[in-house]
Write a protein that binds this DNA or RNA. Structure first.
Lengths: 338, 338
DNA sequence: CTGAAAGCGCTAACAC
DNA sequence: GTGTTAGCGCTTTCAG
C-alpha cells in the first residue's frame, strides 16, 4: 500500500502539503497542488480512511437507517441519498433495521456509535429520545426522512394535505361514497402517516358535507396484495358500495385496481381509484395519484447534512423548503356512474 | 467519548487486556474478561473503528456493489447480505453503481480502495480484470453474486438449467408453441443471464423436437411494464399464437399476465405463463415460477467472505454447494387449449 | 495470562 | 505557502 510519504517524496514536498493538496483544506500553491495530484495519480495513492478519520475526527461516511429495502418508497429514498452522498465524496453505510427491537438496539449501541459515521439519516423511524440524545452528544448530525422524530429536523410531506388533495380530487369529480384503504395499526407505530392520511381524508369529506363512515375504511399493509384484499372487502358489499377508493399508497391502489377487475368492474367507469406516491408502475396502471418524490427526499436529506458537516459549501438553503407533492391525474379516476 | 484506557482503569487491567478481552483475540482469563466487559458496559464504551482499523488493518466492514436498488432480486440479495453481515458484527457500505462508467470507475478508485472495506461483494457486475487485480493486490477478498467475474468465486444459479426446467414444465403439460420473453442486449452486457436463459429454453425445445422460432422471442427490460409490452406483441399475432410464455423473470411474467387479461384471454385456459424468481408477488398472481433464493445468495456470499476473513470460525463450508432453485407450480400454467 | 511500548497513516497546530 | 511534529485511539509484538 503506497502511503502519503511516498507521494510527498515523489512530489518533492512535505506530507503536510500532500494532505492539504488532496483534501482541499488549507492553502496550497497551484504548482505544488498539481505536482501532488500528479504524483498521487502516478502511484495510485488513495488516503486511508482509517488514518485520516482517526487524525481528523471526520470519516466522510454517513449512516442510513432504514426499515425496508424492498419497498418502492424506501429504495427510492436510499437511491437518492446514495447518489447525493457519492456526489459529495461520501460513503454510505447501510443499516437495515428490518427486525425486532433487539437488532435495532444493537445497531445503535455497537454500529452507529463506532465512530464510523459522521452523521445519520433515519428513514421512517421513530427514534427514542435517548437515541437522539446519544447521537447529539457525539456531535453527529441527524436528519429524519418520513418519520416523526421529536426535536430533530425531519423531512416529511404533509400527509394530511396530501390525503386531502387526493380526496378532494375524487369529490370534485362528483364522488360521495369514497372508501379509504389505510395502514393498519402496526404501521402506525413508527410513522404516523397512516393516521395522518386518514385524517386528511376525513377532513376533506367533512368539508364537503359527507360523513366518513367506518365501513368505508379498510386497513392494509401497504402492499399490492394487501390492497387487493382490502378493496375486495370494500367493493364486495352488495349495496351502497363505494364509487371511489382512495388508497394510502400506490401499491395498495394497484391491488385495488386488480381487485376491481376481478370483480368484473371496469375502471374508471364503475369505480375510480387514486393512490399516493407516483410509483414507477403508476403510469403503467394508468393510476391517478399524488406524487411525492422520495429520491428527492433522500437527496435533500443529504444536502442538509452536508451543510452541517461542511459549512461554507454551496449547498442549497433547504431550511424552509416544504416537501413538494403533486396531483397526477391519469385514467383511473373519472366521474362516478350515474 | 470514553476511551480504552478508562475502561482499563476501571477494570484494573492494562489496555492490552481490554483490547484482547473485547476482541476475542488472544487469551484472557475469564476473570479479567468479565471485569473488562463489565467496565465497558458500565461506561458505554465502544471501540473506535478508525483507531482499531488503523492499528489492526481490519475494518469489520464490507462493501457491496450493486447496480439496482429498486428491483426485487437486487434488494433481496442486499437484504440477505446485510443481515448476515450484521450477524457477524460487520457493517455494510453500499455502492450503488447505477450510472455510467464514470461513476463506476470513480467508485473503484476512490471509495472501495480507501481501505474502508475488508472485502467486497459484487452483485451482477462484470468487473474488469484490472479491477479484480487491484482488489487482489490489496488482499481484499471478493465474491460475486449473479454475475460472471473471471477468476473470482461467483454465486450464480445455473441459468441454463433453470430456463430448461421452466420450459420443460410447459412442454410436459403438452405445450408446443412456447414463446420466450428474455432480456434485451443492454442487459446482457453485465450479466449474461438473458443469453443463458434463452439457451436453456431453446435447448429444452430442441430436446422435445420443437424448433425455436425467432418470432416466438421478444426482448424486454425485466420490468412489469416491459413484460406487458412484449407479451402483447407475442399474443397479438392473429395465427399460431403461442399457448404458453416463459418469461425470464417474474416481473416480466406478471406483465404478461396483465397483457393476456387485457387481450381478453383467460389464464391458464388460453395461455400458460411461467417466470423465474419467486417474486414476493408471485403467489398473489398465482404465477408458476422457478424459485431462486436471492436472500440466501446474499447470505451465502457473506459466509464465504467470513470464512476468508476469519478463518476458524464455524462458518459453513460453502465451497461445493451449488445454488438451489426449485419449480413452483401455481395456477398460471395448465394444459394447452384443445 | 498480562503489561509496556512501539507504531498504524494521516492531519492540524505551530512555526517559519 | 510550506515544513515539523505531536498526537488521534487502538492493536500487537515482545518480555515477563
Amino acid at each position: 500500500m503506497v502511503g502519503i510519504d511516498e507521494v510527498a517524496k515523489l512530489a518533492g514536498v512535505s506530507t503536510a502539503t500532500v494532505s492539504r493538496a488532496l483534501s482541499g483544506r488549507g492553502h496550497v500553491s497551484p504548482a505544488s497542488k498539481a505536482k501532488v495530484e500528479d504524483a498521487a495519480a502516478r502511484l495510485g495513492y488513495v488516503v486511508s480512511s482509517n488514518a485520516s478519520g482517526l487524525a481528523s475526527g471526520r470519516t466522510r461516511n454517513v449512516g442510513v437507517v432504514i426499515p425496508f429495502l424492498n419497498r418502492w418508497y424506501f429504495s427510492s429514498v436510499l437511491e437518492g441519498a446514495q447518489q447525493a452522498l457519492l456526489r459529495n465524496g461520501y460513503d454510505l453505510t447501510l443499516y437495515n433495521l428490518a427486525g425486532d427491537g433487539r437488532e435495532r438496539s444493537s445497531v445503535f449501541e455497537h454500529f452507529l456509535l463506532r465512530q464510523r459515521v459522521d452523521a445519520v439519516v433515519a428513514v421512517s423511524l421513530e427514534l427514542t429520545e435517548h437515541e437522539v440524545q446519544r447521537l447529539h452528544d457525539l456531535g453527529k448530525p441527524l436528519v429524519g426522512v418520513g418519520g416523526p422524530i421529536p426535536g430533530v429536523r425531519t423531512l416529511t410531506i404533509d400527509d394530511v394535505a396530501v390525503a386531502r388533495l387526493a380526496t378532494e380530487h375524487l369529490l370534485a369529480l362528483g364522488h360521495r361514497r369514497i372508501a379509504h384503504i389505510g395502514g393498519d395499526l402496526e404501521f402506525d407505530l413508527d410513522f404516523h402517516l397512516p393516521t395522518n392520511r386518514r385524517l386528511g381524508y376525513e377532513a376533506a369529506l367533512r368539508d364537503a358535507g359527507v360523513d366518513p363512515e367506518p365501513r368505508m375504511f379498510a386497513p392494509a399493509d401497504f402492499t399490492i396484495a394487501g390492497g387487493y384484499q382490502a378493496a375486495k372487502q370494500l367493493l364486495g358489499v352488495p349495496h351502497a358500495r363505494p364509487t371511489a377508493i382512495f388508497a394510502a399508497s400506490d401499491e395498495m391502489a394497484m391491488g385495488s385496481i386488480l381487485a376491481a377487475r376481478d370483480l368484473g368492474m371496469v375502471m374508471p367507469r364503475d369505480v375510480s381509484i387514486i393512490g399516493i406516491d407516483d410509483h414507477d408502475l403508476a403510469e403503467f396502471f394508468g393510476l391517478s395519484t399524488v406524487a411525492q418524490f422520495p429520491r428527492g427526499q433522500g437527496e435533500h436529506a443529504v444536502e442538509i447534512l452536508m451543510e452541517q458537516l461542511e459549512p461554507g459549501t454551496d449547498a442549497a438553503q433547504p431550511a424552509a423548503t416544504p416537501l413538494p407533492f403533486e396531483l397526477r391525474v391519469r385514467s383511473s379516476t373519472a366521474v362516478p356512474p350515474a
